[in-house]
């Protein structure tokens, strides 16, 4: 039998969840709404919840008559590479920060914190001057290099906190049984940190996916442009075509959303608690 108080709590809980979901989704809904509104109704029916005529013309135009598919491909290459490289580097680095005390650790942490503290705008001119003799401006590899460096410090802190949550006894037991530390790290600790790694992967992917400033400054040609730069081109070319721009925005959201739906289940698993018990 369910007690009334319990039932009331459950209803309040579900209602609160619904409010969050509505708040999170409404702006996205509006984005979709604008993207299917025909140009002639964009302002006259601007406030209506749904236009009296919906059209997919904006999407068709973006896919067939713009460079958007190319931007999309570039963004995909850059974001996926960045996410994987950063996750590997930050897992190793985060493990070092979590498990060892060593000379210079304080300074390493300090330097990594320092990288989070200034506006990256400050770095644009120097980075451009450094990368251009190496042929890394106007190339996707250069962009990946820069994004990896920008994301590694935070990802390392994140991974460190995930490692901190895993008891040291686990790898100490393995090392007593004759495993080297690296074996223990790879075979025991890393599998337990998979949810953490998935979270890191997700953070970095979205950060790289939406970065605009450096993509704008380091890339000048269409061939290596990522999609945020491409989106801006809808603003600067002739006049702003909001319908097309929002359509491109909706398309750009799809991979990020799919990525999120895939990784979020790793967060739910809470493998750490299970490892301590089992």
């Amino acid at each position: 039998m369910i007690r009334p108080k319990r039932l009331g709590m459950t209803i309040a809980h579900r209602a609160a969840i619904l409010v969050y979901v509505a708040f999170a989704l409404f702006p996205l809904y509006w984005l979709v709404k604008v993207s299917v509104t025909p140009n002639d109704l964009l302002y006259s029916e601007g406030v209506k919840m749904w236009p009296s005529r919906a059209t997919l013309d904006h999407f068709a135009f973006v896919l067939e008559h713009s460079d958007f598919p190319l931007f999309f491909r570039n963004s995909m290459i850059v974001s996926v590479s960045t996410a994987f490289i950063v996750t590997i580097l930050s897992s190793i680095g985060g493990y070092a920060l979590s498990r060892f005390t060593f000379r210079g650790k304080f300074w390493i942490v300090g330097l990594m914190l320092l990288t989070q503290m200034f506006p990256l705008v400050m770095l644009i001119a120097p980075i451009f001057k450094m990368l251009s003799p190496l042929g890394l401006t106007n190339s996707l590899s250069g962009l990946i290099l820069v994004y990896v460096a920008f994301n590694v410090p935070f990802a390392t802190f994140l991974m460190q906190s995930f490692f901190d949550g895993i008891p040291k006894d686990l790898e100490e037991a393995a090392m007593i049984d004759g495993a080297t530390r690296f074996m223990a790290f790879r075979q025991i600790i890393l599998p337990l940190t998979l949810p953490g790694m998935a979270a890191t992967l997700g953070f970095v992917f979205t950060a790289a996916w939406s970065e605009l400033l450096f993509a704008l400054m380091l890339i000048s040609g269409v061939d290596a442009s990522t999609f945020p730069v491409g989106l801006l081109s809808f603003v600067s070319k002739f006049s702003v075509d909001f319908g097309q721009m929002m359509a491109a925005g909706v398309l750009a959201l799809i991979p990020a959303c799919i990525f999120f739906l895939l990784i979020q289940r790793y967060l739910v698993q809470g493998l750490t608690a299970g490892a301590v018990k089992g």
């Binding site: 580097l89 498990r99 320092l114 400050m122 770095l123 980075i127 450094m130 460096a149 920008f150 590694v152």
Partner: peptide, 28 residues
């Protein structure tokens, strides 16, 4: 040297791509 080997890849990248440009930026 183990902890240094673990943190070296991340650290080298941060120094070359962020801290060196930061120093140049500060000189500006």
């Amino acid at each position: 040297s183990e902890p240094y080997l673990y943190s070296a890849p991340a650290l080298i990248l941060i120094v070359t791509v962020m801290l060196v440009p930061l120093a140049i930026g500060i000189s500006y």
